[in-house]
Amino acid sequence: MGREITIKVLKYNPTDSQSTPTFVEYTLEETPGMTLYIALTKIKSSIDHDLTSDFVCRAGICGACGMLVNGKPQLACRTLTSDFEGGKIELLPLPTFKLIKDLSVDTGAWMEKMSLRVHSWIEKHEETDLAKLEKRVEPAVADEVFELDRCIECGICVASCSTAIMREDFVGAVGLNRVARFSIDPHDTRTDEDFYELIGDDDGIFGCMSLMACEDHCPKNLSLQSKIAYMRRKLVMS
């Protein structure tokens, strides 16, 4: 027999005129190795069929299940219930993003807007001949690009960010990291001036106040601080 745990969830459906935001408590038995994914799936199938949350890969790879767990933004699927000593867990939807229902928020629309804003793709001038040898890249440079390409757009950096919570249009660490990623990619032909055009304002790189909650909560442990600082130095000089 596992211990009993209590999961408290803020439930609200903004599209339903009858719905009012309320906290609902669920009590269930903990099983060995239980994650919040397992716990919420259990609640959905046996206690409250109406509870809504988003899970896709349930392995910390896709970034769908960010939520506030006892106040901290994190991926629910990677959170073990055994980490909470008292067995009391409070779940809230990620702030900053549009609430869909209960724990489900629209990170997709936010990320799309961000991607379009920073032109989140390789810009290049010439066509690649696919039958010919690929362009050579220094192994260390490829590794460095990969390091920044590991971002999974979970939105946790945005939901951790005090700037983002106050200023709707702030591009967030995810956007700044994305720009840094393309700026060091040898396939991309954009210059610092080009990047300045994308993020050279107070909604971009100069809006960041370096509060570091992005880096401290990033489930992928991306080195956001040094990359944002790198972009800031480059763009102030450019």
Binding site: W121, I122, K124, T128, L130, E134, V137
Partner: peptide
């Protein structure tokens, strides 16, 4: 090779 040109940072 197409993916490399689109930015996949393949290990080299």
């Amino acid at each position: 090779r197409e993916l490399a040109a689109w930015g996949v940072p393949w290990s080299r």
